[in-house]
């Protein structure tokens, strides 16, 4: 009888494992060296594409590529040149120069929690982290290289040939390059700021009164910040015209992709995590401080025809404004910007 029960439970267990492996739940990956993402308290699991399961070796290869200057035509810049860990994987200048000092037209966005992003680029023109890899590599004012030439370059490097064969069972190719880089980028996770400790980890003592007041203002129906900067990601990934500018002729934003006039000046709502580190702000990096941001919103924006109707202005005392900025600073995750797993070796 006892033996029969044991067999019964083994059967259930085996069925359980096999059934779970079918689900899209990324926690259960049947590969022997499966990597389990360290997902912070309060966060849902990100979607991991079926064709790019995470493994430790793949993530390590992706990290090597992320900091690899050979991705650029003249081997002068890497992904990490614009996406610096100390600035939460963004940069501290308005427009970061690409090869030969060439300037594009957009501020380098933070990669904080990019695994949860639903579409890539500020205008949503590219669908996945994997397919996005082509953009910096082939853009004239970024790396100005070419995927075919990059594959040739990596195939001439014995270390990369070994690493790709180890991870993918094949020599460096576009599939492996895009999958490895995306796998590493999915580990760029920030969820241990003082806000997180207070809000998701129950450590009520980590925020002071001013910061708590700032948090209440942030989530208040008067300021409406959290209408778009919502949830644990501090964004709803919608495209909004936030009325910072009157003229979007230099960069029409979402309209560049949709060609619709109602999308002119709309950009994807960015996360506010690590916002104190990711300035200068906005798509063009023309706004220098959190103070200026609050001023623009409290003044009700430029009144551009596509401006979000949520932006109608509000009044804050000097103390409240200071508190709001103090709260935004609690979203800085110091463990994240010093995490050696994410930094250049």
């Amino acid at each position: 009888m006892k033996k029969q029960n044991t067999t019964y439970y083994i059967c259930l267990f085996v069925a359980g494992i096999i059934f779970s492996s079918c689900a899209k739940d990324p926690k259960i990956i049947v590969e022997p060296d499966a990597y389990v993402l360290n997902v912070p308290s309060g966060f849902a699991l990100p979607n991991i594409p079926d064709d790019n399961p995470l493994t430790a070796a793949k993530i390590a290869l992706g990290k090597k590529l992320f900091y690899e200057k050979a991705l650029s035509v003249d081997s002068t810049i890497s992904c990490g040149t614009c996406h610096k860990q100390e600035f939460a994987f963004s940069d501290n200048v308005a427009i970061t120069a690409g090869v030969e000092g060439r300037l594009g037209f957009r501020n380098a966005p933070t990669l904080t929690n990019i695994a949860w992003a639903t579409e890539m680029l500020m205008d949503g023109g590219n669908p996945t982290l994997e397919t996005q890899v082509y953009v910096p590599i082939e853009t004239h004012f970024e790396m100005d290289f070419n995927m075919v030439l990059l594959v040739n370059r990596l195939n001439a490097d014995a270390e990369y040939v070994d690493a790709f064969n180890n991870v993918f069972g094949s020599n460096p190719d576009p599939f492996g390059i895009t999958r490895a880089l995306a796998a590493f980028e999915r580990t760029i996770i920030s969820g241990n700021s003082r806000f997180d400790q207070y809000y998701y980890q129950g450590k009520t003592e980590v925020l002071n009164e001013q910061e708590i007041n700032g948090m209440q203002l942030f989530f208040s129906p008067t300021l409406k910040c959290a209408s778009c900067h919502t949830g644990y990601l501090f964004t709803d990934f919608t495209y909004q015209n936030n009325g910072f500018f009157a003229d979007y002729s230099a960069d029409s934003g979402r309209a560049r992709i949709t060609l619709l006039s109602e999308d002119v000046g709309k950009f994807k709502v960015p996360t506010l995590r690590n916002i104190a580190l990711t300035g200068p702000y906005m798509h063009n990096g023309q706004i220098n401080s959190l103070e200026e941001i609050i001023d623009s919103y409290s003044n009700g924006g430029s009144g551009h025809i596509n401006q979000s109707e949520l932006i109608q202005g509000f009044v804050l005392t000097a103390q409240e404004k200071e508190n709001l900025i103090l709260f935004l600073n609690t979203l800085t995750d110091n463990q994240f910007i010093h995490n050696p797993d994410l930094g250049e070796d």
Partner: peptide, 13 residues
């Protein structure tokens, strides 16, 4: 597949 020169746009995919 990938071409040199490229015949693909990443920015609008």
């Amino acid at each position: 597949g990938a071409q040199f020169p490229s015949m693909h746009w990443g920015w609008s995919f």
